[in-house]
Nucleic acid binder design. Structure first.
Lengths: 216, 216
DNA sequence: ACGGGAATGGCAACTACCTGCCGGGCCGTT
DNA sequence: AACGGCCCGGCAGGTAGTTGCCATTCCCGT
């Protein structure tokens, strides 16, 4: 594989053509929409194989979107991976493309599904790798550690379950405040805290985020 | 099964104990969170068996939550069922418990998962059945027919994809309007239309709904 | 070209929402 | 008791969002 850019179709071909890269890499940076696809089948996974045999010399970073944590099964799976082979896991609310960077030398980008198989671009072109890597680093820095994220979600749930209910019922602040036996000022303070916690800049956005996080 | 209330564990036991009820019933009222569980395996499904042999004398009503329609596979499956054995299908945004009412005489309510199996309460107590049935009727009346619902979602998507994007980015109306090359007045009109279409009374609620419908 | 309906966007009045400020009450410490 | 920290909630001034009104413009069938 001397070409700097190769397109492969489906996971099988990806393994066949790029499996050796996984086997030798020591630095994995990985962004994913879900646990789906090539990362799911753990036993047949080159990364897993590589990992278990070379624990300690590895750096594994994974970046996920928060939806993943809604499903408690995937959440547990995440925690297991983190514990099992020392992967660092962070969560971001940004939209991310499925991306893998190996040893800062090779990038694998997932493309669209075609005829039931996903296309992957395997890229060794240094400039491109550099660019993707810097994007990844940015996303990584702006992301939240899984543990912190979990704690925050727990906090929000505790902070304002009733506020969330009232907001999602579409009631006015006045009504909501009285319902809770609070002053309007305090209620709005709660909403503001909630929005901060959700990282939202408008109530619409807060609604979207809350729904994303499964809080409503 | 003479007891008025029976608790069974897992679908298998439910079939064994209550299968005959499905086989003879002609009036099915069913509310579901998803297509999961006992309704999935279509060939082994007593309802399907009953239905195919007695088409015409049946009344089948099913109530789903909109999330189901996000997955185009389940959406197609729904449409197929509707067409195949004349089930009436409606969609509601209310939270609903998994519920089945047979011939207005027997209620089956799904409970929590325990040890991987879901508990079901099979209830023949007339008062309870009456109560559940009236709740179902209420939910049914307030729900939207699948076709109408589909049309509405399509309409919203077409109406304002970019407005949805901008709203969910949390940008101010002024900015959003200029981005779209619109006047603020017009942009806000769009937002208002969107909110009406979503049945939302606040932007927060609109955000939640939009997310629920998978529009953002 | 011409009339009519629909979409646009400015204006304005209104409502809802956001936030700094501050006084007051509660509680644990000194 | 006196103090400090903290939360509450009213107030006020500001910003953002909502809506009716209306002149203008665009499009379309006549």
């Amino acid at each position: 594989m001397n070409e700097t850019v190769t397109i492969v179709h489906g996971e099988e071909e990806l393994f066949r053509r790029a499996g050796h890269l996984f086997a030798t890499a020591t630095d994995f940076a990985c962004a994913a929409d879900g646990l789906a696809g090539w990362m799911t089948d753990h036993t047949a996974d080159p990364v897993a194989a590589a990992t278990t045999s070379r624990l300690g010399s590895l750096r594994v970073r994974k970046l996920y979107r928060p939806e993943l944590l809604l499903n408690s099964a995937s959440a547990r799976e995440l925690a297991r991976r983190r514990d099992e082979f020392g992967a660092q896991i962070r969560v971001t609310t940004e939209r991310i493309n499925e991306t893998i960077v190996l040893d800062r030398r090779v990038v694998i980008l997932a493309g669209d599904l075609k005829a039931g198989r996903r296309g992957y671009s395997v890229i060794a072109q240094p400039e491109i790798v550099q660019g993707v890597m810097s994007l990844f680093e940015t996303a990584w820095r702006s992301a939240t550690d899984l543990a912190v994220y979990d704690a925050r979600v727990a906090e929000i749930r505790e902070l304002a379950p009733s506020v969330l209910d009232l907001l999602s019922q579409g009631v006015k602040d006045e009504t909501a405040a009285r319902t809770l036996g609070l002053g309007v000022r305090t209620y709005r303070r709660r909403v503001a805290e909630l929005m901060t916690a959700l990282g939202a800049e408008s109530r619409f956005q807060a609604g979207v985020r809350a729904r994303e996080l499964g809080l409503v």
